[in-house]
Amino acid sequence: MSKLIKKRKPNRSIGGDIALYIFLILVAMVMVFPIVYAVSSAMKPLDELFKFPPRIFPQHPTFDNFSDLFVTMGKSGVVTFSRYLFNTVFITFVGTAGHLIIASMGAFVLAKYEFPGGKTFFKIVTVSMMFTGMVTQIPNYLIINKLGWIDTYWAIIVPAFAAPMGFFLMKQFMEGLPTSLIEAAKIDGANEWTVFSRIVMPNVKPAWMTLIIFSVQGLWNNRASTFIYSEERKTLVYALQQIQAGGIARTGQGAAVLVVVMIVPILIFVFSESQILETMASSGLKD
Rank of each mutant, 00 (worst) to 15 (best):
M1V: 14
S2P: 05
S2A: 12
K3M: 13
I5E: 08
I5F: 13
K7Q: 12
R8F: 00
N11L: 09
S13R: 10
G16H: 09
A19M: 10
L20I: 11
Y21D: 01
I22Y: 01
F23D: 02
F23A: 11
L24V: 12
V30M: 14
V32Y: 02
V32W: 02
V36T: 04
Y37E: 12
Y37L: 07
Y37D: 13
Y37F: 15
A38I: 13
A42D: 02
K44I: 06
P45H: 05
E48G: 05
F50A: 04
V71L: 13
G74N: 15
K75Q: 13
K75F: 04
S76R: 13
F81Q: 07
V89H: 07
F90P: 00
A97P: 01
G98I: 01
G98A: 04
G98S: 03
I102V: 15
A107Q: 12
A107L: 10
A107F: 13
A111R: 07
K112R: 14
K112G: 10
E114H: 09
F115T: 07
F121P: 02
F121T: 13
K123W: 10
T126R: 00
S128H: 05
M129E: 01
M130E: 00
F131C: 06
F131T: 05
Q137V: 15
I138E: 01
N140G: 04
Y141F: 15
L142Y: 14
I144F: 04
K146F: 09
L147C: 11
W149E: 09
I150E: 03
D151H: 07
W154Q: 08
P159Q: 03
A162Q: 01
A163F: 10
A163Q: 12
M165H: 11
G166F: 03
L169K: 07
M170R: 05
K171M: 14
M174D: 04
E175R: 12
L177F: 11
P178M: 06
S180V: 08
L181G: 06
I182T: 07
A184Q: 08
A185T: 05
I187K: 03
T194D: 09
T194Q: 13
V195A: 14
V195T: 04
F196R: 00
N203A: 07
V204E: 05
A207I: 06
T210F: 13
I213G: 06
F214V: 13
Q217T: 14
N222Q: 12
R223D: 02
T226N: 14
F227N: 10
I228Y: 05
V237N: 10
A239V: 06
Q241V: 08
Q241S: 05
Q244E: 06
G247R: 11
I248W: 06
T251L: 14
G252I: 12
A256P: 04
V257G: 01
V261A: 08
M262H: 04
F271S: 02
E278Y: 05
T279E: 11
T279W: 04
A281Y: 00
S283P: 00
G284S: 11
G284A: 09
